[in-house]
Design a protein around this nucleic acid. Structure first.
Lengths: 152, 152
DNA sequence: GATTTTTGCGTGTATATGCACGTATCACGC
DNA sequence: GCGTGATACGTGCATATACACGCAAAAATC
């Protein structure tokens, strides 16, 4: 077997640990999805657009818990690739985001691979830890929320 | 009290959960460190440069578990800000990364604030979850490692 | 009906991240 | 001394992410 690099122990800084975990798991999912041509971020956006029908950018941002402006640019890529459509809506302020046939085909390809990694991940991590992860997400987002806006 | 946004339940996708956690906690730390003018990523780089003396980019990358090329650009910013110095080494291939007085002053400012968030974080998350997090990091980095390189 | 507020979008600017490549130099074996 | 492989860097290209702004139009208020 190949040597394999020695992995530094987790940091004392909670934030860095989460960031390290994020980088590592993103790499795993992205590699798994690679043949489908989708990144895990794009896959998740597409899946949610498909699931929650045509919807506005803001609504999708809330679902994905992403900065709206971040999503705007992410969606631009999906639009350029022909996976989604960004059409006007009755209310001219809003935009209707909807998945295209091409987009559905893409997630079809990706889904199989996603299920595989997801299964592996669950096996390696364990149910208990997964639950704790869910809790961790909730706690952190709760904390980050309050701080966000207080002003006017 | 302000309404506060409703927080969507954690995703089924393990990867997305970790990414969400990463975004949330990064926001918390960055806000806490804001007055110091450092991002949490920069703070960690500076702290490690300070701790492990002058060292090469590659060495630091291993410590931080970062892509070397990513680190190169991150360091460029710290250098422009005058926090570090990137000087040549006996071996002309290598570079010596070292912290400057200005850099030490910066982490001095940041450290107090970091300790505060870190404490809050530990309180909110709990020892058990923190251990779980450490384990999660190890497992994920272990998995991501193997896949990496098999080549020639 | 006019004014103010709120809502929804997109852009400019900046950071973080990773992969594919190319370059220079050291360390080895011959 | 000369290839050869390994090592250390940096860059081009692409994505993800967030904050500060500005713009337009619906909604609410008077």
């Amino acid at each position: 077997m190949p040597a394999g690099k020695p992995i530094p122990k987790p940091s004392v800084c909670v934030c860095l640990n989460v960031r390290r975990a994020s980088r590592a798991i993103t790499k795993l999912y992205d590699q798994a999805l690679k043949p489908s041509g989708l990144k895990v971020t794009q896959f998740s956006a597409l899946m949610n657009i498909d699931a929650h029908g045509p919807l506005t950018t803001s609504a999708l941002a809330k679902i994905l818990m992403l900065e709206r402006t971040t999503l705007v640019r992410n969606l631009k890529l999906l639009e350029n690739a022909g996976f989604i459509e960004n059409s006007p809506s009755p209310d001219p302020r809003e935009r209707q985001i909807s998945i295209t046939a091409h987009g559905r085909h893409a997630i079809g390809q990706a889904q199989t691979r996603w299920r595989t990694v997801q299964r592996q991940m669950k096996q390696q991590i364990g149910t208990e830890q997964l639950q704790m992860l869910g809790h961790l997400v909730t706690v952190l987002e709760g904390m980050a929320d309050g701080q966000g806006t207080s002003p006017p």
